[in-house]
Each structure stands twice: as C-alpha cells, then as structure tokens.
Amino acid sequence: MKISSIFILSISSLFILACNSEPRKLPILGSREPVEKTVDGKTVVDTIYQTIPAFSFMNQDSAIINNDSLKNSIYVADFFFTSCPSICPIMSKNLLTVYEKYKGNPEVRFLSHTIDPKYDTIPVLKKYADKLGVKGTQWSFLLGSKDSVYLLAKNGYMSYSKENDSIPGGYEHSGYFLLVDKDKRIRGAYDGTDKDQVAQMSKDMDVLLSEYHPK
C-alpha cells in the first residue's frame, strides 16, 4: 500500500511540534530591572524581579508567619477585614473553594491580611477562621500594625488599603487575590469576587506547582 507523502509530512510535523512544545509558564508580574553580571568571563544581562518584602505577622492561632514560614510554598494573598459588609464575605467564600482543593498540601498556603487591626484582634480572627471551617496554619488570617500592612499592600503586592469613612465599613481595599511563587514573585492577580477568575487562579496554581515538579 502506498502511503501519501502529505500524510507522512503531517505526522512528521506533529512529531516536531510535540518535541518542541514546552509546558505553559505563568508570567512574572511587577517591576523588573536589568542588571549586568559576569558568567564564565562573559558579560550577560540578567533580570531582577519585584519580590515580596520581608514581613512578620501573627495569625489567628498566635503563630508568627513570615517569609521563612513560606520558603517552600506558593501562596495566595489578599486583604480584608472581618466586619466588611461588601466584598470580603464573597472573597472568603470563593477562596474557601480553593483552600478545600489544596487542603493538606504543604506547598500551598493562603494569607489574608486584616486592614482593621484595631477591631480584628486575634480572638476575632480565630472566630472568623472557625466560622469558615479553617484549621491549622495553611490559611492564616494575619494581624499586623496598620502601617506595616498598608505598606506591604502597596510596595509588595501592588495592592491598596485605606480608611474611607464615606463608605460602609469605613475601609477601602483591593478585591484581588495575588498568587506568589516560592521565590516571592507575583505570578498572577485575580478578582476575588469573580468565580471564573478564581477558577482560573486554581488552574494557574497547578501550572505554578508544576514548575517545581517537572516531568
């Protein structure tokens, strides 16, 4: 039987594409700076990416959470307050579905930073976590000084938080979830009130994890 040359070319093309295909990688967000360095006697240009600054906050179980606590994990960060009458309950409900998916996975963490430290004491954060059904340190509801949290939101997560007495709840903040890799670089930003974007974040988390476990 004579095999068509077009068929052979098509199969060959598919084989080449399969061999050359690479796993999808998430972009690195934030500012970046080109720097020159010497490698094997040659000058090459490398890129320094924005990373999350060092921080140290206390969670709902009075445990200290800092950069070292997260060195072997990717994580999702957001900003909220427990008495929020608008987007926070929606965000927490949506993030809970992602938490349930990765529950027990030591490579995945969740950080929710309160922007109302005066009201959101450790017992209040603990009650909030218990009501959601969150146990342990995989999802930490973090308490820090207002200045340190607001500065971290602005300089670390490209986010914002501020007091605003003209709106219900008295605080204004970003409704985004920020996906951070093990090198403390932001790899994705998702509207925490949008179920489709949260679902995409969940898929992207699988993609990010695969970077650390190549097949």
Rank of each mutant, 00 (worst) to 15 (best):
K131S: 15
D204S: 11
A129Q: 05
Y190L: 08
F110W: 05
L143F: 02
K154D: 12
K71R: 15
M1Y: 14
D40W: 03
G175C: 07
D194K: 14
F81W: 09
G41W: 08
S140F: 07
A63S: 14
F57L: 09
K203W: 02
S148F: 00
V198K: 08
I6D: 12
K146D: 04
P117V: 10
D61Q: 13
L111P: 11
I65W: 00
P168I: 11
C84I: 11
S161T: 12
R109L: 01
V198E: 07
P168H: 09
I115T: 09
K203P: 01
I3K: 13
D204E: 13
D204N: 14
P85Y: 03
S4Y: 04
Q197H: 10
Q138N: 00
A54M: 01
C88N: 06
D183M: 12
K37S: 06
L151Q: 15
N72L: 05
Y49E: 06
K215S: 01
A189I: 13
I3E: 06
L96V: 04
K71Y: 08
P106C: 08
L96K: 14
D130V: 08
G188T: 03
S56I: 03
S73F: 05
F141E: 01
D46Q: 14
K103R: 13
A77T: 15
D204Q: 06
S69F: 11
K146C: 01
D196R: 13
I74C: 12
K25M: 09
L142P: 04
H213E: 02
D130R: 07
I6Q: 07
F80A: 09
N66G: 06
G169T: 13
D61W: 02
E100Y: 00
G133M: 10
H173K: 04
F15M: 10
S10T: 14
L26N: 11
I11G: 04
N155G: 07
I115Q: 09
I3F: 11
I8Q: 00
V198Y: 05
V45E: 13
S21Y: 12
G144H: 10
K93N: 13
Q50W: 06
S166F: 01
Y176P: 02
I48S: 13
E100S: 12
S31M: 12
K93F: 01
P34R: 05
P23W: 08
D120E: 02
Q200W: 00
G175H: 08
R187V: 02
S174L: 03
V39L: 13
G192F: 07
Y176D: 14
